[in-house]
Amino acid sequence: MELRKNSGPLKWVLIILVVIFLAVFLLLPLFYIVITALRDGIGGYIASITDPYAIKAALLTIRATIWAVVVNTIFGIAAAWCLTKFAFKGKKVISTFIDLPVTVSPIIAGLIYVLTFGRQSFLYPILDGWGIQIIFAVPGIVLATIFVTFPFISRELIPVLTAQGTDEEEAAALMGAGTFTIFRKVTLPHIKWALLYGIVLCTARAMGEFGAVSVLSGHLRGKTNTLPLYIELLYQGYDFTGAFAASSILVILAIIVLALRVWLERRGNKEAEIHY
């Protein structure tokens, strides 16, 4: 092992380089948000984050996030189960389409929904007849959020299920277990940490999505403004303290997400070690 632990001047040069790089690019912006948010004192901070519009924006963000997590969890489990437990034609095509949303620019994601549900679309008169408005309204925001986080959960589950194989489920099926029993008793214990990890990632991205939501939101204060859009609005109105105060909420959530990630990964690895 001596080779790996070689210490020398190079080791410390590289470590210091990495520490400076990350301190400047990652920690400084975080630190700056906290300092600026608290610039007008605790009272000003509390006033900023309890502003009725801020609370409405936060509630809409939470709503869109819950939708995204629920839809993507159902989809993720179904897609992972379908793609790993069965052999059929067209698997590659399906997984390409599942991964597509993350390779597309968020603005283009917004654009394709505008083209689908906007005034020039053939769907518009039908939906309008039912009184459903999608773009520049809450459903559009929810759809955009689902789209940008689409593969997050399935992508965590598929490798785990592929590695696990199908023997255990086949045994359970031969012994007469039904679909949901097999899933609950055999599959779920294997994937639970990966599933939680996927949900954490999906939550983080859903809360913070800006570009796609920005295209589809009508930017109505209190109605279709999510937290990131509200931050933009405050920033462009030169209310920097307010913008950074609202940002600090998302910073805290980001830190919680990172801590959860580390914890989940450790739990997952520990269980994997027990299995082997």
């Binding site: 990652l26 990632l201 913070g208 800006f210 940002s247 910073v251 980001a254």
Partner: peptide, 20 residues
Amino acid sequence: IDGIIELPFALPTAVAGISL
């Protein structure tokens, strides 16, 4: 350091944008 590397995934882009 290993833990914070994924900060850019977790931090909303608009928040990073205004801070930078």
